[in-house]
Design a protein around this nucleic acid. Structure first.
Length: 224
DNA sequence: CAGTACCT
DNA sequence: TCCG
């Protein structure tokens, strides 16, 4: 996998693997893990609270009728939604009928800086999906393909208790590498990795000093 | 777009 | 299993 920048914070997904998985090395161009890039999250957590007070976490339903284990909210111009009629982005929160809360400046700055760090300059997200995982919550392998412009990367910020991130290939049945993500880690994928399947293993019981038994993930996207 | 068989 |  391509190493986009050479510094102490940036490593590629391959660096998280053990020797038994070295064969994957050539399969991860366009993806990077920035361990600790978001620091202790102290600029982000009050903003998460503010957003989710206006747009509370809710468990969405998939088109096939399953209730997702992850609770979600959104901020920015567009919010990702799932219900029985499908997946899509919308500019209003169905729960309130009002626009999603505006994206906090701290969110946008972090996402743009992380993208640039990974080699994607000029990333200006217009959507931030906020995912809340409690122990047992998971997200099965999927592709992010509800956005218009796949030239724009995805930036994912992890806060709270650890989770194993799955990063697969362009086909659902391709093998997935596993990356442990902890509080402050940021993953960026784009370019040739933009449509790679990814997901999160069921989150294990754990306690984080400030987040308790909770993991929050911020996923930044350019929708329009 | 609903939801079976599958076996992660 | 179109983000169980």
């Amino acid at each position: 996998m391509t190493r986009h920048k050479q510094d102490g914070l940036t490593m590629n997904l391959f660096d998280s693997l053990d020797a038994g998985e070295l064969w994957q090395e050539a399969l991860c161009p366009g993806a990077a893990v920035l361990h600790g890039y978001a620091g202790d999250g102290r600029l982000l957590l009050p903003a998460v609270h503010d957003v989710t007070t206006l747009a509370p976490f809710r468990q969405m339903v998939t088109p096939s009728g399953f209730r997702m284990s992850v609770a979600m909210s959104n901020c920015g111009s567009f919010g990702w939604l799932s219900d029985k009629s499908g997946y899509r982005y919308g500019s209003t929160d169905p729960l309130s009928g009002r626009a999603w809360p505006r994206m906090p400046d701290s969110f946008a700055r972090l996402a743009s800086a992380a993208a640039a760090q990974a080699g994607f300059d000029g990333f200006e997200p217009d959507a931030c999906l906020i995912n809340r995982y409690e122990p047992g919550a998971r997200l099965s392998l999927h592709q992010d393909k509800d956005e218009r412009d796949f030239s724009q990367p995805i930036v994912s910020v992890s806060l709270g208790i650890p989770a194993v991130f799955l990063f697969g290939g362009l086909s659902r049945t391709d093998p997935a590498i596993r990356v442990l993500l902890t509080h402050g880690d940021v993953v960026v994928w784009g370019g040739p990795a933009r449509l790679r399947y990814h997901g999160v293993m069921p989150v294990k019981e754990h306690n984080h000093p400030i987040m308790g038994r909770c993991r929050i993930n911020l996923t930044f996207r350019k929708v329009m």
